[in-house]
Design a protein around this nucleic acid. Structure first.
Length: 290
DNA sequence: CGCCATTAGTGGG
DNA sequence: CCCACTAATGGCG
């Protein structure tokens, strides 16, 4: 494998609003059981409660209090109960048609053929770069055919994150090219730039079963959730929920393919490849956008 | 009754 | 063999 050279150690600027928000998210998602008050959060950051409230709400569309509420088990259960509607049905979307136009992110996808999958990335050139995101450093990987990978990394774990992704397609050629990936990163994390006119092209590299699972995930709208077993039913293998769990966990384009919207049947968050704290953070953030 | 922990069955990689 | 699942079961307030 082609291991790359320039992997930054930390690209998150300190002391900025952005930094404040990520630290609040971390505190809330780690200590949500204690329901920390606005005041105690502010004290820990050395800021005034009003200032903190304002900065956070602008980012999340949600006050810290509401955010806390959104990452609670009760809320997850509600998400699961309220659906059952069209959710996972074939997407006949508002005003748009065509099987590749998908509901929420306006993503078009293309999947790799089984033969290509067997080649483990041979013949593929993957350009990658690290960029700040609301959920920590994001590793973005693109090919000519579209976005192929999106991973997260905690500070100092960038290299491990890269290895995790690169080992999935060990025969590909990897080139550091953050100039090329920057535009993707900017778009992905800015809901104002999600549009049907200019869909984000993604390229799904995985087994047939995995691709079917990932395509199902793409049908879950922002701010909603499903269970592993529902996904299993949806792809016509009602007893394969465990296998679905494994496939969801192998999703190479996290966040864009919304694997964080898959929950356990009881509303528990079960797992997340990039850490449960991050899953809560994303779900809370989405609650503010929905 | 509700809340855990354990167990057995599960399909894909 | 491993696993980001689930339904069933039994213990314990």
């Amino acid at each position: 494998m082609n291991v790359a050279t320039s992997i930054p150690t930390d690209i998150t600027p300190e002391g900025t609003d952005y930094d404040t928000v990520t630290r609040v998210i971390a505190m809330l998602t780690e200590d949500y059981r204690e329901q920390p008050s606005l005041e105690s959060l502010a004290r820990r950051l050395g800021q005034s409660p009003t200032q903190l409230q304002k900065v956070f709400t602008r980012w999340a569309g949600l006050s810290p209090k509401a955010f806390l509420q959104a990452i609670t088990l009760d809320h997850a259960k509600r998400l699961l109960r309220q659906e059952d509607l069209p959710l996972l049905e074939t997407s006949i979307e508002i005003g748009l048609s065509g099987p590749s136009r998908l509901h929420d992110l306006f993503v078009t996808h293309e999947a790799m053929s089984p033969g290509e999958w067997k080649a483990r990335g041979a013949g593929l050139t993957i350009r990658y770069g690290f960029h700040p995101s609301p959920f920590g450093t994001a590793l973005v990987m693109v090919t000519e055919r579209g976005l192929a990978g999106l991973a997260f990394a905690d500070s100092g774990e960038e290299h491990a994150s890269f290895e995790d992704m690169a080992s999935r397609w060990p025969n590909a050629i990897y080139l550091e090219d953050s100039a090329a990936t920057a535009r993707y990163a900017a778009r992905i994390f800015d809901p104002d730039r999600w549009s049907a006119e200019e869909p984000l092209r993604i390229f799904l590299i995985g087994s047939d079963f995995q691709v079917r699972v990932w395509q199902t995930l793409l049908k879950i709208p922002l701010g909603k959730a499903t269970t592993y077993s529902k996904i299993a039913e949806n792809i016509g293998q009602p007893t394969a929920s465990r296998a679905v769990g494994a496939a969801v966990g192998r999703n190479p384009i996290s966040f864009v393919v919304p694997c964080h919207r898959a929950l356990g049947k009881a509303g528990d968050l079960t797992g997340y490849h990039w850490g449960l704290t991050r899953k809560r953070a994303i779900l809370g953030w989405e609650a503010g956008k929905a």
